[in-house]
Amino acid sequence: MTTTSMDRRSLLEGALLLLGVTATAGFTPEAFAKAASARPSLGAPEFALLSAVADTIIPKTETPGAVDAKVPAKFDALLVNWAAPKRRTELVGALTAIDRVARDKEGQPFAALSPEKRKELLIAHDAASLKPVPRAEKLTGMRAMMAGPSVADPAYAKLKELIVVLYYYSEEALTTELTYEHSPGDWTPSVKVTPETRATGGLGMF
């Protein structure tokens, strides 16, 4: 893994490369390699792996997916701008663990697999990693309240959470998957639900 320091603009510009790639049911290994050539903070293989994982968790469907929303580049920026070294190591470790599963079971890097095979592997890995386990440390007060479930692989849980959050905070997701109005204008306490009603997005907790 390289730790080239890059500014945010460069990271985002790198990710834009991905936008030129069309895909219907997941991106191709070539696309991931091309994106990785933009040289964000992760090394090329790791960035390709990240892109493949993000694309498998949030694929392009009738709406944009994580790669369309530049989640890999944004995640890479989090590694540079937000994560402490320990967190970064854990997150990269969680990515590497997914790749290890692919190599063990399929003899290939995760990013080199077909979208269908990636999904098959990650569904199993996701279920095993998010299996509830007894919490090792005792939490009190608000921490007890706000902590999510204790799971078998907390590093994977954080990796997935960040990918999902980055996607649903994106303009792409907030204009297609969820609804978001920056300035709703007024409060209407009762609105009838219709088949078109979608959940609302934004930065709130609840």
């Binding site: 997935k160 609302t200 907790m205």
Partner: peptide, 12 residues
């Protein structure tokens, strides 16, 4: 909110 399911298994 949409965040509710983040920690639950499920992808794609």
């Amino acid at each position: 909110s949409w965040r509710a399911g983040i920690g639950q298994p499920g992808i794609g």
